[in-house]
Nucleic acid binder design. Sequence first.
DNA 1: CTACGTGCAAACATTTTGCAAAGGC
DNA 2: GCCTTTGCAAAATGTTTGCACGTAG
Lengths: 147, 147
Amino acid sequence: MTVDHAASVIAVIARLKDKGYRITAQRQAMIAQLVESGQALSAFEIWEKLKVRYQDISLDTVYRNLHVLVDLEALTPINALGKESVRYELVDTSHHHHIVCVKCGQTQCIEYCPVDPRLMLVLQTHGYELVRHNLELFGICRQCNPS
Amino acid sequence: MTVDHAASVIAVIARLKDKGYRITAQRQAMIAQLVESGQALSAFEIWEKLKVRYQDISLDTVYRNLHVLVDLEALTPINALGKESVRYELVDTSHHHHIVCVKCGQTQCIEYCPVDPRLMLVLQTHGYELVRHNLELFGICRQCNPS
DNA sequence: CTACGTGCAAACATTTTGCAAAGGC
DNA sequence: GCCTTTGCAAAATGTTTGCACGTAG
């Protein structure tokens, strides 16, 4: 694990402690996995990876701890495709979005946020205070594009 | 049913015919329900409403026909909350987005799209051609806002 | 008449929950 | 030692599929 990764893991663990949650081996392993993967993972994927590199962990526990980590605001749930299950991404990664190819289902990160700041004003007129947003982009990738 | 509604229903039915799908009572009822509701509905909600006003329709048929209608590009799937099931909205309604209150789960349409057109250029550099997008907004509504 | 669409039931995938045992603090 | 967390099993939820019957074209 790199120094950066270790620091991220420690930061999330500190958040756990702050909120009165206990530091268990399973939680540490999950956080480490998410930090090192550097991408959004589903509950099942986290479980699969941890079974190999870490000892046993039950899928139930993965689900429960995902809820805990979302509660901490350490993770953001992402609905990558609507067909697949929800994926979770660390919030301290830089803000970005994902594009999904509607033909092959492959996804890619887009390090650009096209959301106009005037959105906040529009939402205020509706009585809402924006907490976060998630932009789902659907397109056709180079490989699937006939042109 | 208003004249506008009737016209929308007819338009979708024409699309069905065009693509070689058959016009069944169940499909007509589903389309009419979506048009008249004027909002995104889940499979279950469509089924529930049709059981009352129309005769019996099976939930399986609702699911199957939702796939057909998405294939026709008559419906857009929306992942309103990530917790709830996928919802479907007619594509010929004006382009807009939805905001979900993270406290109470209530949703509201926002008739404004804050997506910067320069997004297309950024996506092109990634090799993608944008087909559609869906912006999920999460906020706190007036009722739930302590301030 | 023929292929497509439907309803039923069963399968399937994902997520949640009750409970007793294990473990953090 | 207390209370949270875990693993197991079972349930709940949402969606899909196989099959025989019905029906649009």
